[in-house]
Amino acid sequence: MLTKAKRANKIEAKFELKGSGTRILRSWLVRHLQSFFFSLGLMAREPLATLLTAAVLGIALALPGGLYLLLDNVNQLTGHWDKGGHISVFLKTEESDAAAETLAQELRSWNEIARVSVITRAEALSEYRSMSGFAEVLDAFEDSNPLPAVLTVEPRLEVQKPSRMKDLVARLSELPQVEVARFDLQWLKRLDAIVEIVLLGVYLLAALLALGVVLIIGNTIRLGIENRREEIEIANLFGGTNAFIRRPFLYGGLLYGLFGAVIAWGILALGFALLQPSVARLVYLYGSNFELVAPSGPWALALIAGGSALGLLGAWVAVGRHLSTRAGD
């Protein structure tokens, strides 16, 4: 019969402080799944609290998400207007229609210009006669036509930005045959400036709300850590690694972010559905072919990925602050 001491020696002579490689690999996925479902289970146990937190996160995420959609729509709308942008080049009155045609031919070879059409002096006169109501005044000129020929220059799409349009207008003005080249840059500049300010505002708001999301999730996770102090200490004493103890909380944050993003998407999809008919009617009244840009698949994916990432970040911050002081470290 073995003595007690010999039996003890048989059990374990020296503590093994290495995990076996294959078991680590095999259990990695198992552990992550365990943590994931454990976190999910904790949330499911308190559905109302989980839903409330997720709803707060959803609203916080819906605001920047919605503003981004709005901006997307504004961009699309101004895109429609840009296409109508053209420069009116008034030639000097002594230039003949033939000279106008020659100049138009020359301008068509310019890189920046997509199309040039000529309004001859006669055409200009008849147009003016019919449109302006000054027919009698024009009649006083009898045979001499006071109006110059006009070239309508349509720049290429990529040139249709305030700075490049300005350059083009300047070059056209310097041509010897040209009296004046005109393009109403002012409204385009103003719109650009407004869009820029709104965009900056959206970024600022998005940053603030993202910080809000991180703080909300961080605080939720912190409370979870406080509620489960006992469990954490026990797991710690029975050899739970830092990673093991942190993992469920990190998954918790990720899941909160994910749920929040899904709720945000729901809010925005609903808002879009409610707005759609009214916008369609307004657009119809303006006779435009503008269509409201719907929340797209990639956009929804970005929202959900962003929400989850913020959730993970919030949990990471909370876990780092509240689980860092570990016994024995």
Binding site: K14, F15, E16, K18, L237, F238, G239, F244, G328
Partner: peptide, 23 residues
């Protein structure tokens, strides 16, 4: 304990060490 000098067990090995002890 268990053939290990505890002063030489780094913090990250503490969990593995504790798995050999019941409390």
């Amino acid at each position: 304990i268990g053939g290990h000098n505890l002063t030489r067990i780094p913090p990250r090995k503490i969990p593995l060490f504790r798995r050999h002890i019941g409390v």
